[in-house]
Write a protein that binds this DNA or RNA. Structure first.
Lengths: 282, 282
DNA sequence: GTCTATATGAGGATAGAC
DNA sequence: GTCTATCCTCATATAGAC
């Protein structure tokens, strides 16, 4: 049966190559620029071949989502070991935002592109039973905080609080990715401010229980999670630039070059009239 | 000069018709489904005519953004008169979220679709000098809260706080619009929880200064802003359904029928291979 | 399994006739 | 001002040869 196995292996390998190419395209140019043709070009196969491995472009997108989400989870796992639940939550928040900023295109794909992608990623993820692992980590931390008597929280409310926390994290990332021009405080600072305000009364680590103003927490913000998200930041995603200056600089992203994923640029040169977009059936 | 005036009027009228049609399409099927051809069909003109009034599809999108943002501002204005700054902030937050849920497609277009749209809407809005009026209203409320000594906030921090608040509001709306399937607390509840947590120490109106748990604030949440956003909710935006059952029901939206704007459905029937998407130039 | 070639359909934008 | 006709680009997906 060695032959069959080799064939299976080869098939798997090609599948991986497809996903690799797709991931590269998405990371460089954004999901909108992902097309079967481009993937085929990249791996030097014909477009038709892709359909032997994936049913559709959507299926590839789903696979990419699953990958990205797994990557996010990886950055969460070590943080879940932080003892102090307040610090744990804070670290998770910073890591979440850092992930979103380091992988803007992946984050967009998972959480901002299409409801079906998000749903599929969060619900039908892996062999896990319950829906969302990352989410559960946050709930656990809140429960721990409550059990320690540091947060007057009904047992049913931790889920709601976790959702509220998730909302602000997502809001920070999404806002940063979608409208980077707007005069905006550093996302890391926003996380700190938010957590400072939320858990002021749950003060624990002797930090001043003021409401986390700019100066008090601005500076050490991004220090802590640098290690945690180092792997993540090793593969930053850039923005599709004019393809001339977009050289995929291997430097760690600094939010400026990655977050501003420009969609169809308003300055589309009339000479190049090619702007496509997702459309509904008429 | 009556002739010239009439012509100007007629030109303006057609411009309005174009925008009306575009708005209808966006509200019903989402921005992705907006095409020059469809607009032209809707107003019974040729596609070429559109280009006499708008330079490109993007320009139409920008116009729609400006309209939508103005609409959002309208719902804010009366709330800015609320005396108690805490209540004012809370009301603004509820109104913001209510707007997003009542006009999912418009909200998407302004804040979630394309950075250039968001930027253009927020910065180059109207004859105003400063960038963002809605944002300023929030800052003012925070300043008032601080000036009343109810929030120990440095004068420079109110901007940051406003951005953090905006982030959570955006996060709540965006999350609701993008992944509605995820077991999620009611958005209004999330707003209340968040504001309760944020301004627990700024307690004012004799409300219990607990951290706004589920039961304490769940029920009266959406009551207050119903009037404020009545106009808004009078024109709900539905989701592009299979176009068969999508009858544009003129009932006030209840978040269920509007938020779940599904993009390219995974169950795209093979017989109808028309799924387009925005793409970058190669 | 893989490819070439092609069917099918949609879109933005423009030239040039009326 | 408006339309017809058209260009060009892009996509998904399949048929049928190798």
């Amino acid at each position: 049966m060695g032959i069959a196995e080799r064939k299976t292996r080869e098939k798997q390998a090609l599948r991986e190559r497809i996903l690799d190419a797709a991931r590269r395209i998405v990371m460089r140019d954004g999901f909108a620029a992902l097309s079967m043709r481009k993937i085929a070009d990249a791996i030097e196969y014909s477009p038709a071949t892709l359909y032997l491995h994936f049913e559709s472009r959507d299926e590839i997108a789903h696979a990419l989502c699953a990958e990205g989400y797994a990557q996010l989870l990886e950055t969460f796992v070590p943080l879940a070991a932080i003892e102090d639940p307040r610090e744990r939550l804070h670290a998770l928040g910073r890591a979440y935002v850092a992930f979103g900023l380091a992988h803007p295109q992946t984050y967009r794909l998972i959480f901002m592109e299409d409801p079906s992608y998000t749903s599929a990623t969060l619900t039908g993820n892996r062999s896990d039973d319950s829906g969302d692992a990352a989410f559960q980590i946050m709930i656990d931390a809140l429960d721990a905080l409550r059990d320690a008597g540091r947060l007057p929280l009904p047992s049913t409310a931790s889920v709601v609080w976790a959702e509220a926390l998730w909302s602000i994290l997502h809001g920070i990332v999404a806002l940063q990715l979608t409208c980077p021009v707007f005069p905006h405080a550093a996302p890391e600072l926003l996380v700190d401010v938010a957590f400072g305000a939320w858990f002021a009364q749950a003060g624990t680590a002797a930090k001043r229980r003021g409401n986390g103003t700019a100066k008090s927490r601005a500076r050490p913000a991004t220090k802590a999670d640098t290690n945690a998200t180092k792997k993540a930041q090793a593969k930053p995603e850039g923005t599709r630039k004019a393809a001339s200056q977009a050289k995929a600089t291997p430097k760690p992203v600094s939010k400026a070059d990655s977050g501003a994923a420009s969609g169809p640029p308003a300055q589309a040169s009339p000479a190049v009239p090619a702007i496509r977009r997702k459309a509904a059936r008429a």
